[in-house]
Design a protein around this nucleic acid. Structure first.
Lengths: 172, 172
DNA sequence: TCTGAAAGTTTTCATCC
DNA sequence: GGATGAAAACTTTCAGA
């Protein structure tokens, strides 16, 4: 793995640098971390053929390059009481881009907006809503999609079964 | 927090029990764990007003009840080289449920199927595909949606900007 | 079920390769 | 970049309430 710097042992500075070049070990390590980040550095090191401290140094790099942003616990929606998941497709009125900014702010202010994507095509946004109970879902949907000023149309697909959830990204 | 058992100090057995009743502290702890699970038990305990070992015992319960299923590292798709994210809506031919089983198996065999939901309404499934590069995306889309025998129709929405990603679930 | 303390691990960090 | 080893911090376990 190389970072975009010149010099040899210099440049351990605090400015986060971007554009990491990943080697084979980085790919495997990022894969392991995305599957199960609860293992010790020593165990991860055994998986990829490095010492614990070498693993630690690489993880620090992913963090400072903001490739790896956080460690989280994942709950199973099937085992979480009263969870209503819904995929909502939204299109805004065609107008000033100010509409889009306002709509995005409104979306991102709500923690139950589990995911939100700006997409190409007939629809402008895809939102994954996670609410506890149908009443709460309706409250949120009204606030986000009915009361918001520039929503042209939207459609809601309720999730019957979350076959797979997660945030895994391939790195090659 | 209560677990569905009778008896007092008995029943530390290995059969995972379900239906946890969560108290106020559990809600706050699950919230914290979903936001940042990289903090120590002591720090988490300070957040919710418990000792480190009390926090540990509660986390063990979430795990054995399968409410909390894993700890993972989350990558930022904006910082991960060449990631192509796409939301795909799929409808299968109306026929035997065997079609659905086969289609689900095909989906879940592919690691780039980051998320998959069985949904109500006009479309049967919503899939979030995460591929490295457009070529790989097309390969996967052909395998999953063109070559698969019982796909009636599908539509692909490419993600222009992942405004929010994650797996956060509210617990109340 | 909690707290607090002892024992065992892991992480961190300085140093050398 | 990576390895090593010692110090600091963390996790695990258990006695006592």
């Amino acid at each position: 793995m190389e970072i975009e710097t010149s010099g040899a042992l210099t440049q351990q500075c605090c400015v986060p640098r971007h554009r990491l070049t990943l080697d084979e070990i980085d790919h495997r390590l990022l894969d392991e971390l995305q599957r199960d980040a609860s293992r010790s550095l020593r165990v991860l090191g055994e998986k990829v053929g490095l010492s614990a401290s070498a693993v630690q140094r690489r993880i620090d790099r992913y963090r400072s390059a903001k490739v790896l942003t956080r460690h989280v616990a994942v709950l199973d929606p099937r085992r979480t009481a009263d969870i209503v998941l819904a995929v909502v497709l939204i299109t805004l009125e065609r107008e000033s881009s100010g509409h889009h900014d306002a709509f995005r702010r409104r979306l991102l202010a709500v923690p139950e907006v589990q995911q939100a994507y700006d997409v190409a095509g007939e629809w402008d946004y895809v939102v994954l809503l996670a609410a506890t109970g149908m009443d709460r879902h309706n409250e949120l949907a009204n606030h986000l999609f009915n009361d918001a000023p520039n929503v042209k149309r939207y459609t809601t697909m309720f999730v019957l079964d979350p076959l797979r959830t997660g945030t895994y990204l391939p790195t090659r």
